[in-house]
Simulated scan of single mutants.
Amino acid sequence: MATVVSVARHAGHEFSKTVVEDIRIIAGHGIEGDAHAGVTVKHRSRVAVDPDQPNLRQVHLLQHELFADLAKSGFDLSPGDLGENILTEGISLLDLPTDTVLRIGPDVLLRVTGLRNPCAQIDSFRPGLLQRLVHKGADGKLVRKAGVMAVALAGGMVRCGDRIEAIRPALPHRPLERV
């Protein structure tokens, strides 16, 4: 069963987020009190290009299983460290198709828009971490492991322990790409 391990938010544009007891998701907006919430893009690099583009990165979800993998390489990480809003367990986020809807708890619906594309800030946080989160696979294509981004379709509260259900879109499925 897929579940929420932790939730986090931060009002400022900091790299890491603060783990909290619960977060409120607002439909069409994202996480109440989080710097990346809003209808239009909030990530500074994207705002510089076009501040009016839609915000496809309202909610960042990350798989907890990644932490164990990174620990083998000497990276000891805690919830919120990588800027995720929702840390999950038991769901292979990176294998979901684009437009998968995640039902979290009884009320929240998030639509997965794509892969998080981590930037060089990660190496400022922990030197060498970026190459563990983005690297070339055996086929020569980039492999991104820094979680997925989503938009809020239906709001409500999300807490540690909430169940997560993945509702895949109709075929044909489109693979996740960076957003």
Rank of each mutant, 00 (worst) to 15 (best):
G128T: 12
C119D: 14
G105K: 03
E177C: 11
D123P: 04
I104A: 07
F67R: 05
L153V: 04
L110F: 11
L77M: 05
G38F: 13
L142I: 02
P169S: 10
S45K: 10
A154Y: 08
L87I: 06
E177V: 14
L82K: 04
T88G: 12
L66K: 01
R144E: 08
D76S: 08
A146E: 04
V47S: 04
D22Y: 00
E21H: 03
T40V: 12
L176Q: 14
E65L: 03
G90C: 10
V134R: 13
L176F: 14
G28R: 03
D50K: 10
L87M: 14
T3M: 10
I26H: 01
H43P: 03
P175T: 13
S73K: 11
V134H: 01
V20G: 03
G137S: 06
L171E: 15
S16P: 03
R163T: 12
L82G: 01
G155S: 04
S16T: 08
T3D: 06
D34I: 00
V49E: 15
E21L: 01
G33K: 02
G105L: 07
I86C: 12
V59F: 05
G147P: 00
Q131G: 05
K42M: 14
I164H: 13
H60E: 05
A152Q: 06
H135C: 07
L176M: 15
K42L: 08
R174C: 11
K145H: 08
T40A: 12
T3W: 04
S16R: 09
D107P: 01
I86K: 07
H43R: 11
T113V: 11
A154W: 07
A71F: 01
T3Y: 11
F67H: 07
I86D: 08
M157G: 02
L87K: 04
L87W: 04
V148C: 06
D22G: 00
G12S: 11
V134W: 05
G12F: 08
V7K: 00
S45N: 11
